[in-house]
């Protein structure tokens, strides 16, 4: 029975066009030499040049990368710990509260998360800046990391870990040499997710940042509110290119890793 019909083909084509045409237009018009964004006046890379000579954008980009890198590393460590506790930790005092605190940030509107963190920083007298943005981003992205990692943890066999413990590993050694390599792909994609969430965040960063620490989304938002500008198109194109490259590479790497793992398992099965 043939399943794929002309209706399917049309809806996929229209759907993908809807998803990609806005971004394609954005990319094409970043190479437009006219200042009017909607009128094509010939190919030019001058907006990229003016973007790179704009110190405000470069500074904001550095702040964003710094915040993204540090907060996603911290979130990956904490999120993996959370996943391990939730999947393997058994019962402990306050588990219910803990699990609801992990899921709440996923559904909490950003305006509320941002507002509550800002009020905290003010009431403990912490000056707002890069550090407070890192704290805020770590807090919400560790929850996403824990979701990604715990689904991987829940799907693999506990008996491998138990075997390691029986063979004399300490729990920490067992975690390091058995569990960690198995969940590594999930940890990596958790890190990537945390990093992109941090790069993307406007609302929480606006609440948590001080006057001296502007991130790229804050900068983009404040200039976009005044209208469309070719410099922002150029910046968007660069960001889209980086993300596309990152996502495609990581998906190819993880696909290869899974294939290799499967081959090794088959080999071990044959030899054993």
């Amino acid at each position: 029975m043939k399943r794929f019909t002309w209706f399917n083909a049309v809806s996929l084509t229209l759907g993908f066009a809807f998803l990609y045409i806005p971004m394609l237009i954005l990319i094409i018009y970043s190479f437009n030499s006219s200042k009017l964004v909607t009128v094509w006046a010939g190919f030019s890379t001058k907006w990229y040049i003016s973007l790179f000579s704009n110190d405000a954008f470069i500074d904001a980009a550095w702040v964003t990368l710094k915040v993204g890198f540090i907060s996603s590393c911290a979130a990956t460590v904490l999120g993996t710990m959370i996943a391990y506790i939730m999947v393997r930790g058994g019962r402990f005092f306050g588990r219910g509260l803990f699990s609801s605190m992990i899921y709440a940030p996923l559904v909490m509107p950003e305006v509320i998360t941002g507002l509550s963190l800002l009020l905290l920083f003010i009431s403990i007298g912490l000056d707002r800046g890069v550090f407070t943005i890192i704290l805020a981003h770590t807090t919400f992205s560790m929850c996403y990391v824990s979701v990604v990692v715990s689904s991987r943890l829940a799907s693999f066999d506990v008996s491998i870990e138990e075997a390691a413990l029986d063979l004399g590993c300490t729990p920490f050694d067992a975690f390091k040499s058995v569990t960690l390599p198995i969940i590594a792909p999930a940890v990596v994609s958790g890190w990537l997710l945390a990093f992109t969430l941090s790069l993307d965040d406007l609302v929480i960063a606006s609440f948590a940042s001080g006057p001296s620490s502007t991130t790229l989304p804050i900068k983009i938002y404040s200039s976009v509110r005044l209208g469309v500008s070719p410099e922002i198109n150029a910046l968007s194109t660069i960001m889209i290119a980086i993300v596309t490259f990152g996502v495609l590479t990581s998906s190819i790497i993880s696909k290869r890793a899974i294939k290799r793992q499967r081959l090794e398992e088959e080999q071990a099965f044959k030899n054993g």
Partner: peptide, 8 residues
């Protein structure tokens, strides 16, 4: 890809 850019 960035939410903000997609809106923009």
């Amino acid at each position: 890809t960035s939410f903000l850019i997609r809106i923009y």
